[in-house]
């Protein structure tokens, strides 16, 4: 699947120019430090729907950006630096 990511520095570019980065969210309900670390290290939210994530524009400005994307249809909802 390829789609375009609007890089705030460079403009819209094909996804292949970027490296994916996950934003890990550990639920507040987990309080034990070891369990929080285990969750952070291995567990993925893996949502079917909108998710926030990071992309590194390796072929361009070499900076990270943050965006929201819907994993069901790859629609990009929002981008930020």
């Amino acid at each position: 699947m390829s789609f375009h990511i609007p890089c705030p520095n460079c403009g819209a570019r094909a996804i292949e120019e970027f490296v994916y980065g996950e934003i890990v969210v550990v639920p507040d309900s987990i309080t034990d430090p070891d369990e929080r670390n285990l969750d952070r290290a291995f567990i993925h939210g893996n949502p079917e729907g909108p998710t926030s994530e990071r992309w590194f524009h390796a072929m361009g400005c070499q900076r990270w950006l943050t965006l929201r994307r819907d994993t069901r249809d790859e629609q990009i909802i929002l981008t930020a630096r």
Binding site: C10, G11, R13, A14, E16, E17, A58, M59, G60, C61
Partner: peptide, 10 residues
Amino acid sequence: FAQGAVAGLP
């Protein structure tokens, strides 16, 4: 100024 992949290179 513009930057991005050209011929697969940065």
